[in-house]
Design a protein around this nucleic acid. Structure first.
Length: 440
RNA sequence: GUGGCUGUAGCUCAGUUGGCAGAGCACCGGGUUGUGGUCCCGGGUGUCGAGGGUUCAAAUCCCUUCAGUCACCCCA
């Protein structure tokens, strides 16, 4: 029998890491609900044509197929695992528009799948935590300013490095490109997005080669991309470039509002960064990317944007804005750098020692009494010597060992302090009740 | 999907021109007939990632494959 091996890109964390993940997800979920987002879970699969509706990245979609699929099965009816939570949500809104009240605020925390080549913080199966707001026909702009605040609140209470959310607005780029006469705005966006990686010279070359820009146009696009600021001053820098376009003006006004809204609540959280592009299609307004301070080189852990055409039937339109926290990605990076620790590897707060097997029923009663008051408790596996029972607790980080006797005593094995205790009333200090997650 | 690097004990790693698989820490047992950590004694716990090839002989050389990681691609 060969020992089973891991599958590339499908990480399985150990209980301490999973405990941390649950803690993080709880924090995120509670925050989302604090802002009034309603819970939603969509099925894992979507019709393949739905998934591929936008973009030609079909390579990365996992397709679902029965082992005994019929020979003549057509591709039309095949199913794919969802690769994000926005596309399934858009489908859900269209499907259930009649039952929903708009604007509709929902959160979704689910696994998604992408057939990418894995590396640290980048997996084929991973967890995302997503919020979106959609409305019918038109979506008020102010929701675009709200997204970063929710994310900052959710992540701000966690023992992780501070985040910085980079924002841009598609209208700024597209208006600007139109203003200077660049023919292929999408190609231009794609080129400009690489600025940090390949530098201004290569971006200028790309702009000429792929976006059909002249040298002067490339220079202008590059000048725009190099602008960034944590306050509204970026708008002056853009206007100083002397490009005139109504869409540009609209985008600038929106981006200023996003930045100023954030600065009022959380100064330094948001930075306007005009090279941020995100995916090629479907974003139409504000776009977000998020860096963990100190982990900038690992890319964005949270991203999203405004979309106007994702959910539409032709007659009805449901514009939306959303942002998604890459939970697995963020935790994978932090775990990889030993930047998160937990005080114990199991939930157990108290181990009830067992003097002899004849005493086990009494020990079980003690455990039940503690559990009934919310103290996570387990009973020692065997009536081994007390030294071994204490070691059992120590190896797992369990802080307390309960010794049956006349009277019962409980020992804090970290300090060695042992006191008389009654299982009907004893309570550990609040900080010992659950494992504590902390930064390294 | 393309290319590079890495893979030896639970962890960190050593292993010479191919010649009996090692160290530290961790862990297990005992000293300790019942309260751990210090100390002493004892124990190597391994499919050298896997499969195949070359060879008298492979952790070592060759091929394939799996996994991790890095750079691309992509990031909906």
């Amino acid at each position: 029998m060969t020992r089973p091996k891991p599958i590339s890109g499908f990480p399985e964390w150990m209980p301490p890491q999973r405990t941390i993940e649950q803690y993080v997800v709880d924090r995120i979920r509670n925050t989302f609900e604090l802002y009034g987002f309603a819970p939603l879970e969509t099925r894992a699969v979507e019709p393949l044509d739905q998934l591929l509706r936008k973009g030609e990245t079909s390579k990365e979609v996992y397709v679902l197929r029965r082992l005994q699929a019929e020979e003549g099965a057509t591709d039309d009816d095949s199913l794919g695992l969802h690769f994000d939570l926005t596309v399934p949500f858009a489908r859900f809104v269209l499907e259930n528009a009649g039952k929903l009240q708009f604007p509709f605020r929902r959160y979704q925390i689910q696994k998604v799948w992408r057939g990418e080549r894995p590396q640290e913080g980048r997996y084929r199966e991973f967890l995302q935590a997503d919020i979106d707001v959609v409305d019918r026909d038109t979506l008020p702009f102010h929701y675009e300013a709200e997204m970063p605040l929710v994310v900052a609140d959710a992540l701000g209470g966690l023992p992780i490095p501070p985040i910085r959310i980079q924002v841009n607005n598609r209208k700024v780029c597209e208006g600007f490109y139109r203003g200077v006469g660049i023919g292929d705005p999408e190609a231009a966006l794609r080129a400009v997005d690489k600025l940090d990686k390949i530098g201004p010279d290569r971006v200028a070359e790309l702009l000429v080669e792929t976006a059909g820009a002249t040298q002067a146009q490339a220079k202008a696009a590059l000048a725009l991309a190099e602008i960034s600021a944590t306050d509204a001053s970026f708008a002056d820098a853009v206007r100083a470039l002397g490009v005139e376009d109504p869409l540009l003006d609209e985008g600038l006004a929106e981006l200023v509002r996003v930045v100023e809204t954030a600065n009022e609540v959380a100064p330094g959280l948001v930075i306007a960064d005009l090279k941020i592009a995100r995916g090629l299609d479907y974003y139409t307004g504000t776009v977000y990317e998020t860096q963990l301070r100190g982990y900038e080189r690992f890319g964005s852990i949270c991203s999203g944007g405004r979309y106007d055409n994702l959910a539409s039937t032709g007659t009805e339109r449901f514009p939306g804005v959303g942002i998604s926290i890459g939970v697995s990605r963020m935790l994978g990076l932090l775990f990889g750098h030993d930047a998160l620790t937990i005080s114990r590897s199991v939930p157990t707060c108290v181990l009830v020692a067992v003097p002899t097997e004849d005493d086990r029923p009494a020990c079980d009663r003690t455990a039940r009494a503690l559990r009934s008051r919310g103290v996570p408790t387990e009973v020692a596996p065997t009536a081994a010597k007390y030294g071994k029972q204490i070691k059992y607790a120590e190896r797992r980080g369990i802080p307390y060992v309960w010794f049956p006797g006349e009277p019962d005593t409980v020992k804090d094995i970290r300090s060695g302090e042992q006191v008389e205790a009654d299982a009907a009333t004893w309570q550990p200090p609040a900080e010992d009740l659950r494992p504590v997650v902390s930064g390294a």
